[in-house]
Design a protein around this nucleic acid. Structure first.
Length: 643
RNA sequence: GCCACUUUAGCUCAGCUGGUAGAGCAACUGAUUUGUAAUCAGUAGGUCGUUGGUUCGAUUCCGACAAGUGGCUCCA
């Protein structure tokens, strides 16, 4: 019997039935056969050793393919397990999948401990095993036999996995002395794995549940060549240079102190300038969009959070209450209840809607200590918060306007690497994590989905990420070390309006409850500035730079001229500093460059005589001669347009 | 909160197996008046995160606590 294989370029060739994908690869070229890791047959990734019995489309996967990489890393996880089992006989394995940047394996080490020194030994052992070119062998096994096999091994973890597998779909993979329950696929043999780095050891709860036992998770990454590993390591080091925690210190943006407390940011003068620029942008934007600005206190009585419904859901992440005058007060962890009270302060009619109120609100959240992370996850934060109270008919327009506001901001900051996430509830957690209104959930989720579809915004849908009061759109970003955060959020709230008995008079003189939109396009100052530092690698645009211009006189013979230039800059509202230290010009330039000052003005006797400036831009070698008033006009324009 | 690691001068870091610490940069002082990424010399700086214990003696070994870091859980 002959079967036909269709290749990605559309060409079709015939092969004998039972031919393996590897045979097909060999028939194309030896070079391909040497580098190919797995095959995609009719869209499904399979081992190269699998016999093919039907007509199919076939594609060969190398390391540069995402699925090829995953297969490679998955196979490396098995190799690591083999090395760990050799080092610690009797350990038990849970799962060892590939992840975005490598792989991990969760292991129950019993009462033994794995140290960082062991990682080096493991890498060595893995390299030795890899050189043996051990073949990854696939074996189909009945469920009964599999249960017998793992019962004999006393392996409760694999037995647990087997519970959810049906007879006939169970396979074992073996390489060298290691056998694992695994659906595959795998690379042909361990010899492909040329460079290995075990990156860290971490704890991970079994099945991700904190009530369960904590297993030891070992992370690693591997490559088909040492060169690729070296490049990867260099990339990581590059990324570390733009870590906001490092830049925040180098550029004197913020500080923290043990005496103040964990997760509590103190903004230094430089950071405060960034904050003020961001708030200026937000105020302008919100004013244009018809928002009113309000100011509300940082604390409130317990009763308000009972009304809002926050308390049962968020008590654990609020700072403990304080007792005052026989009342219980909480530091707020959200602004919305205060804003609802602002809405309720005066009677509203449909003519007042949409009613939009904004505040850079300070909130306090008692985040778990292990979760704190630089500026990205803190305990005192300043939200670019606003609430929009509107009718059902106005909802789509308002919600879209908020989305447009995001996009406007993102354009200003050149933000393009983000994922829009439609965050939905999880029906099995109604009444636990989400208000128990199944119909309203369905309705509002569809409403939000339609807004996204109608505005042609690419997005993903994820369950169990909604707020307790409604679905939302979150803008997900990644820190340089790869951690995911919600930068901005746009949320529907169908619950709090009625809880607070908010109402407005309709056109036919009845009353109705407004729908509420919670939104924070600029997220919080903390997270947003952390993000911006990494996004710009510390090279903030002129309008955000704490110091925009540095005047660098060559000697103090031109001090008067330098001072005059500085004064002129400051008069034009440009943040300018004079470096009048008795240092050589090279030194002054170096220091200004390291501080990432956008504009440097070198002034010597020549400039003083001509009344000119020697302009040098950060990161740009060489200089040009300009007139003070021309430069001021140009900088002013750049700043005013936030370029 | 859980697992692991880390904590030495303002910053970045060195300090083998226990005998109370060192460098570079920054700071300060003096000299130098300088042309596009580090001028030279000198001075000063630390009860080695805190706190118990072991020891004749602890920065070093052990415990507790705190903070930070990598994950897990969580994330309004």
């Amino acid at each position: 019997m002959s079967i036909s294989m269709q290749f990605p370029d559309g060409s079709v060739r015939g092969f004998n039935e039972g031919v393996t994908a590897m045979d097909v690869a060999k028939s194309i070229s030896e070079g391909l056969a040497r580098n190919v890791l797995a095959a995609r047959v009719n869209g499904k990734v399979v081992d190269l050793s699998r016999p093919l019995s039907h007509d199919a489309s076939i594609e060969f996967l190398k390391f540069d393919d995402a699925d090829g990489k995953s297969t490679f890393w998955h196979s490396t996880a098995h190799l690591m397990a083999e090395a760990i089992e050799a080092m610690f006989p009797g350990v038990k394995f849970w799962v060892g999948p590939p992840v975005d940047n490598g792989f991990y394996y969760d292991i129950d080490l019993g009462d033994r401990k794995l140290t960082e020194e062991d990682l080096g030994k493991l890498e060595k052992r893995m390299t030795e095993l890899a050189r043996q070119k051990n073949v990854y062998e696939r074996k189909e096994i009945s469920k009964a036999d599999a249960i017998q096999y793992f019962t004999d091994k006393n392996d409760e973890y694999k037995l647990d996995l087997l519970q959810n597998l049906a007879d006939g779909e169970i396979t074992l993979y073996s390489q060298g002395n290691f056998t694992d329950l695994c659906r595959g696929p795998h690379i042909p043999h361990t010899g492909f794995i040329k460079a290995i780095k075990l990156t860290n050891i971490a704890g991970a709860y079994w099945k991700g549940d904190e009530k369960n036992k904590m297993l030891t998770r070992v992370y690693g990454v591997s490559f088909p060549s040492q060169k690729e590993l070296d490049e990867y390591v260099a990339l990581l080091e590059e990324a570390k240079k733009r870590d906001h925690r490092k830049l925040g210190k180098e550029l004197s943006i913020y500080t923290m102190d043990d005496d103040v407390g964990p997760g509590l940011i103190m903004w230094l003068p430089n950071g405060t300038i960034i904050i003020e620029e961001l708030e200026k942008l937000a105020k302008e934007t919100e004013e244009d969009a018809g928002y009113h600005r309000v100011v509300t206190p940082h604390i409130a009585k317990e009763s308000m959070y009972v009304t809002s419904g926050h308390l049962p859901y968020y008590k654990d992440s609020m700072y403990p209450p304080m007792q005052l005058d026989g009342e219980t007060y909480y530091l707020r962890s959200m602004n919305c209840p205060h804003h609802h009270k602002v809405f309720a302060a005066l009677p509203k009619s449909y003519r007042d809607l949409p009613y939009r109120i904004a505040e850079y609100g300070t909130v306090y959240r008692y985040e778990q200590s292990g979760e704190l992370f630089g500026l990205m996850r803190v305990r005192c934060l300043h939200m670019n918060d606003a609430h929009i109270y509107c009718t059902r008919d106005q909802f789509e327009t308002e919600f879209r306007a908020v989305n447009d506001m995001y996009l406007k901001y993102f354009k200003i900051f050149g933000v393009d690497k983000y994922v829009m996430r439609l965050s939905l509830h999880s029906p099995d957690k109604l009444g636990i994590k989400y208000v128990d209104e199944p119909e309203l959930w369905k309705e509002t989720e569809e409403m939000v989905r339609q807004v996204l579809i109608n505005s042609n915004i690419p997005y993903i849908e994820v369950q169990d990420e909604a707020a307790f009061y409604g679905p939302k759109i979150d803008v997900q970003i990644y820190s340089v070390i790869g951690r995911e955060f919600t930068l901005a959020t746009n949320q529907v709230d169908f619950a709090q309006g009625s809880r607070f008995k908010l109402s407005y008079t309709t056109a036919d003189n009845s009353t109705d409850t407004p729908l509420i939109i919670h939104r924070a396009p600029l997220g919080t100052h903390e997270r947003f500035i952390g993000f911006l530092l990494e996004h710009y690698a510390g090279r903030l645009p002129l309008w955000l730079s704490p110091v925009q211009v540095k005047v660098l006189p060559i000697s103090d013979k031109v001090h008067d001229y330098a001072e005059a230039v500085e004064v002129a800059m400051r008069k034009a509202g440009i943040r300018c500093q004079l470096d009048d230290r008795q240092e050589k010009i090279g030194r002054k330039i170096r220091d200004a460059e390291l501080q990432k000052i956008p504009v440097m003005l070198v002034l010597g006797e020549k400039e003083a005589v001509d009344g000119m400036l020697s302009l040098r831009r950060h990161g740009v070698e060489g200089s040009e001669s300009v007139k003070t008033e021309d430069l001021i006009a140009a900088l002013r324009q750049e700043i005013d347009n936030r370029l």
